[in-house]
Structure formats: structure tokens, C-alpha cells
Design a protein around this nucleic acid. Structure first.
Lengths: 336, 336
DNA sequence: ATGAAAGCGCTAACAC
DNA sequence: GTGTTAGCGCTTTCAT
């Protein structure tokens, strides 16, 4: 391992001069600079980011702790955050929890977050009570549906009105029995619950009852499960003339299932997804979906985080979670 | 910021005792341990990962430097690597370059890799000549198609035989004019070139010429571009009865375009993708695709990296790139 | 079972 | 323009 001191000795200068050269600071003579650069090149010296971080107290990195990478929603958000971080002169590092309680706790404990100047954390298993017990030393902005103690920054998509709009559209365009794939029977305050809330509100708005048989709980939110859920409804003999899915992936699987059943979309059955991923435009038929507004959300999150980093602490006084982006229904061929 | 010394003072012990408690090392009296734990809890102490790393010389993390997250291929591979790293007692951190030369260089320079005990690096822009100039201090395994100086570990998917098999199948099942969406006219030794090589070899094998008009260069590899490429072929009046795409996303866009054109798949036109993502099974019709063998590849990569970490250096003597996984054609409904 | 001293590789602050 | 000193927060080593 080549150290700064080795370079200094080789160039017959002090480590400070090497440091100044490496960091492009002014006040180094041209001849000296060249000598130092030559020594660096010859020895193959590379600065040690760890030592620098320890000394300066900053890492230049922002962390994004997320449940899954293999999901278009997170992948897209991660790309947005990565770009945004770069624009702010920082690097985004991603860390996957796999959506398990154990790994979420691990990511927030043991000082792992100290690797970052600040972190964006999307939890799915940990609850407010767990968070209350943690001593975070790093500025954090929480994402996602789990409630978070009031002292923390929290950004959340407008799940309820997004799915309310989608369901309302289905009910207003002649569908009477709207299935909700990925919905929840009990409100556990997760993403699926919030989207189910909007679905129920839309029914309330037009004075219609929700048939519990139409709400199908599924996990995970994959094409396969969407496919299965629709086939299952059909096999159980539950009549439906529209399908609202809590994610695009479920909706895409649902489309496949409807094709298997010989049902026409949207003539026999309308379909709406949630996430508005780039694939929606290329399904057969093109999938209508709720656009969650990731781009705005990424910017908002990074701005909040930056402010926290400047202020220098993880907690603050914002009493309420912030709703980042207004979800917006995008109509394509799978709806009337 | 609460330091170990603060805890030590509060518990009336030395920092060493606190360190021993924090790290679960033996040789601490029960009563002392409890006093220390109480102090840790009260002060909200969290170890500083940076300081620990500086002292111990290890970070416990493995880096994965990759071009894009918003692509099913990388997302899937990242998940595999993340799981594999965890099984080996390490954490995977991801870093996105965006596939630009500038950011790829940046990721490998400035000692950024020193944040990791080892790194998996997938380059798309940097060439062997660039790498030859770099002084890497961290054990690295390179992924992807770019050639890499012989002293570095390099794992690569078997692109050529994968696409050769796919094309051979198309030619043997009655297709005479196989379009290659995402192919290359000149061999630039990237992923697309290698897959085009296999496509050409398959033609050679049966003594058939490749019509250059059938090879459509596109970028990026999205549904949208696949859709466009097929429509463009049709508009130009180029006849084709099969489409081989360098990625699944292109193939999915192609399926959509064929539906738009009123062509039946596979009766009029056969389609094959590459990556064998989970969605292939839910397309209409289900998409035949080449399975790249990510799971095996992830394991191989991590094993090689671990060996390098133990050996303690980035370079070695393996003279040839290793071909990780044998790509394998998976037939579904989009082929005959 | 516990503690004191030294130092990981770097940079801030201040000499010269 | 360049060097010296001190110390970031932790753990290794050795003493008690």
C-alpha cells in the first residue's frame, strides 16, 4: 500500500505538499507540482478515501437504502436520485435490504449509515416504534408508506388520490365490478393499503359498495402474481369488468391472463396499473397507469436531505410527512 | 457526535473496554458490560464505520460499479450479487456510472474504490488502454464485453454461442430472412458486436449470406427502440420473417410493433430476445429468449473476488478472460 | 478483567 | 511556497 508519506519522500517534499497537489489546491510551485505528480505516477499512489473521510468528516456520498433493485419502480427512482446527487456534487451509493426486517435494522444500525453524508431510506418492514429506538447520527430522509416518528423527514407519494382517480375513471366509464389486484382487506398502512383506501373512496364517492370478493391480496407484485390473481378470480366465478392493480407488473400479468381467458381489453375488461413505467406504452394493448411523479419526488428528497446535511443532524421539527408528488392517471388503450 | 471516549467516561471505563463490549469480544465482566451498554444507550452512541475501517483496513463492503440500474439485466444481476455478498458476510454497495466515460473513470480513480474491500466493475466505455494506465489498489473483477488487460480478473457471458444458437433455431424452423435488431455492422467488440458475431456464424453454418439491410443498429435497448426498429424495417420495405433482438426489451417492443402491423407471431414472424427476464413468460405471445446464466455468473464473480481479497491485490496472472456461464436458448410461444 | 500508548492515512491550522 | 504539529475515532499491542 502506497501512502502519501511514500510519495512525499520520493519527491523530497512534505506530505502537506502532496496533499495540496492531490487536491488541486493553490500555492504549490510548478516545479514542485511536477515532481510530486511524477512520484505519484511512478509509485501508483491513490488517496485513501477512508482516511480522508475520517479527517474531513465527510464522505461525499449519499446512501439510498431500498428494498429491491429488481423492480422497475425502485430502479427508476434510483436512476433519478443518482443523477440528482451528481448534480449536487455527491455520489449515490445503493444498498439493498431485500425488504426484510433484519436487514433493514442492520442497514440503520452498527453505524453503517456513517459511510454517507446523508441517506435516503425506504423501509417496508420497520415501524415507527422501531425507528423511535434507533440513534441515527446521519441526516436521513425516509421514503415510503410506513409512518415515521415526527422528528424525521418523510416523503411519500400520494397513493390515495392516485388510486382514487384511477378507480373513479373505471366506475365512470361503465365498469361496475372493479377488481383490485394487490389490494388489502385490512388497512395496515402500507402501500397496498393506501392504494386500497383510494379504491374504496372512489366507490364511496359514487355511492357504491365494495364487494370483498373483488379485492385480491397478492405478493410479490410480479407479472406472475398478476396473471395468477386474474385467473383465480375467474376460476372462483367472481364476475368483474375492470381490474385495478397496485403495480404495473401486476397489471401486465393481468393483461396476459385476460388474453389467456379470451377476454377483450378494454371492451370486456378495463385494466389500470400503477407506476407508469416505460413498458406500459408497449403492452398489447397499451396499459393505462397512474404516474407517481418520481422525478419531482427525487428532487424534493435530495433538497430536503441537503438541507439536513447543512444543518448537521438527522432529526428536525417538521411535524408532518410531506406528500411529494401528485399522482396522475395516464390513459392509454387498456381503458375506455 | 458521540464518541467512544464519551461512553467510556460515562461508564467510568477505558475506551478499550467499550470497544470490547461493542464488538462482543470476551473478557469483559458482566457488571462492566451492563454499565457500558447502559451508557451507550443513554448517549445514543453509534460506532463510526469510517474510523473503524481506517484502523482495521477493511470496510466489510463490496462495490458493484454498473452502467444502469433501470435495466432488468443489471437489476437482476445486482440482486444476485447482493445475496451472494451477504452469504459471504459482506455488504454490496452499488454505484451507477450512467455508462459515460467520464463517470467510469471517476469511479475507478480518486481512490473511490477504497471504500470497498473489493469491487465488481462493469465497464461499457473504458477500454483496455485506459485501464492499463490506472493504478487500482482494490481487488477488482471486471464484467462485460470490453477487453481488459490480462493481469485483471475478467468474467464474461458467452454472448457468441448464445446468439448463434438462437439464430440457428430460427433458420432451421423455416425462417429465411432473420432481422437482427440491435446488431452491429462493424465489430467494435461490445456486447452487440459479439451477439452479432453469433448471428453471422449461424448463417455461415448453413451456408447463407447475411443481408446487411436486416441488421438494424439501435440505441438504447428499450421497448421503444425495438418498436421503432421493426416499424422502420417495414417502412423501408425490407422483407423479414424472424427478428432476433440483442435484448428482451427490444424484443418486447418488436412484439408490439408486429401487433401494430397486423403480423402474426410466430406464424408470420418469429421473435427471440436475449436476457430471459421474468417478463418474457407473460408477453402476448410468450417470448422465447436466451438465458444468460446470471446466477452462476454472480457466484463465480464473487468467488474470484473473494480469492483476490484474500490474496490482497487487484492484479493477478490469469492470462485469459473467463467465460462464466453458458448462455442457453429458452423456447416459448414466439418461435416455432 | 481492564487500561495506556501508539498509530491507521489523511488534512486543518498554523508556522516559517 | 513549503513544513510542522496535532488529531479525526477507532483498534492493536502490550502492560497491569
Amino acid at each position: 500500500m502506497v501512502r502519501m508519506a511514500d510519495v512525499a519522500r520520493a519527491a523530497a517534499v512534505s506530505t502537506m505538499t502532496v496533499s495540496n497537489v492531490v487536491n488541486g489546491r493553490p500555492g504549490v510551485g510548478d516545479e514542485t507540482r511536477l515532481r510530486v505528480l511524477a512520484a505519484i505516477d511512478e509509485l501508483g499512489y491513490v488517496v485513501d478515501a477512508t482516511a480522508r473521510s475520517l479527517r474531513t468528516g465527510r464522505t461525499g456520498a449519499i446512501g439510498f437504502v431500498l428494498p429491491e433493485l429488481d423492480s422497475p419502480y425502485y430502479a427508476h427512482l434510483a436512476d433519478r436520485l443518482s443523477d440528482g446527487a451528481r448534480r449536487r456534487g455527491r455520489h449515490l451509493l445503493l444498498e439493498r435490504t431485500g425488504g426484510t426486517r433484519e436487514h433493514e435494522l442492520e442497514a440503520l444500525s452498527f453505524g453503517h449509515l456513517r459511510r454517507y453524508d446523508g441517506a435516503v431510506v425506504h423501509l417496508v418492514r420497520l415501524k415507527a416504534a422501531d425507528l423511535a429506538r434507533l440513534h441515527l447520527q446521519t441526516p436521513v430522509v425516509f421514503l415510503g408508506e410506513s409512518p415515521v416518528p415526527g422528528r424525521f423527514e418523510h416523503v411519500m407519494m400520494d397513493n390515495v388520490s392516485g388510486s382514487r382517480d384511477a378507480t373513479t375513471h373505471l366506475l365512470r366509464t361503465g365498469s361496475h365490478r372493479v377488481a383490485m389486484v394487490g389490494g388489502r382487506h385490512e388497512d395496515t398502512h402500507d402501500m397496498a393499503s393506501l392504494r386500497t383506501r383510494g379504491y374504496r373512496q372512489a366507490h364511496d364517492d359514487v355511492g357504491r359498495e365494495v364487494d370483498p370478493a373483488l379485492v385480491v391480496e397478492v405478493a410479490p407484485y410480479t407479472w406472475e402474481q398478476g396473471h395468477r390473481a386474474v385467473l383465480a378470480l375467474h376460476e372462483r366465478g367472481v364476475a368483474f369488468d375492470a381490474v385495478f392493480c397496485v403495480t404495473d407488473a401486476l397489471a401486465m400479468g393481468a393483461l396476459r391472463a385476460l388474453a389467456d381467458l379470451g377476454l377483450r381489453v378494454p371492451a370486456d375488461v378495463q385494466v389500470v396499473g400503477f407506476d407508469n413505467g416505460p413498458e406500459t406504452d408497449f403492452m398489447v394493448p397499451r396499459l393505462s397507469s397512474v404516474e407517481p411523479g418520481n422525478a419531482e419526488m427525487a428532487e424534493l428528497v435530495l433538497d430536503l436531505l441537503e438541507a439536513r446535511i447543512q444543518a448537521g443532524g438527522p432529526a428536525g421539527r417538521l411535524p408532518h410527512p410531506t406528500t411529494a408528488a401528485t399522482a396522475r392517471l395516464v390513459l392509454r388503450e387498456s381503458t375506455r
